[in-house]
Computed example of a mutant assay.
Amino acid sequence: MTHTQYDSFLALADKNRREILMLLTKEKSSINTLAESFKISRPAVSKHIKVLVDTGFITIEERGRERLCSLNSQGFEEIQSWINHFEKFWKQHLSSLEVLLKKKGKE
């Protein structure tokens, strides 16, 4: 499921959003707990979280009055696909270069 309101790459361009994602690799966290890790306001952190939810990087689970944020692996699929494309591209080109260098070495 791709969320198209925001571009995944633009979502990751902000250092605060990247830091939120890094914090969530350690454990699920409430929005208030996440906000305590930043020098920006809680509403600003909430806006960053909304972008991350809208792009599918995180999900929010309601637990009573608390809202727990956690990473969503599906959100990273677009980024991973893009990286895989270029990894394949470079492996093919480096392999071709290796073959060429071996041929040149035998001459």
Rank of each mutant, 00 (worst) to 15 (best):
L52V: 11
K102F: 04
K50T: 02
E19L: 13
K102D: 04
I83S: 06
E107L: 15
K91E: 05
T59A: 14
K104W: 11
V51G: 06
F89W: 01
E61G: 03
G64Y: 14
S46Q: 14
I31L: 07
L10N: 08
Q80N: 03
E78W: 02
K103F: 12
E62Y: 00
L71W: 11
K47C: 03
E87T: 00
V45P: 02
I31H: 09
N16L: 11
V53S: 13
L52C: 12
S73C: 12
N72A: 01
T25V: 08
A11Q: 12
A11K: 09
D14L: 01
F9N: 06
G75I: 06
Q92R: 05
N16C: 11
Q80M: 06
V53E: 15
K39L: 03
D7V: 04
N32Q: 04
I79N: 05
T25K: 11
V51E: 13
K104H: 12
L100G: 07
A13L: 13
N84E: 13
E107V: 10
M1L: 09
A35N: 09
E36V: 07
L68K: 03
N16F: 14
R67C: 12
T2F: 04
W82A: 12
E62M: 05
F86Q: 09
A44R: 11
S70L: 10
H85C: 03
K15A: 14
E107F: 03
A11E: 08
N32P: 04
I31S: 02
L21R: 07
R63T: 04
S96K: 14
K88T: 08
K102W: 09
F9H: 11
I58T: 03
S95F: 08
S46W: 05
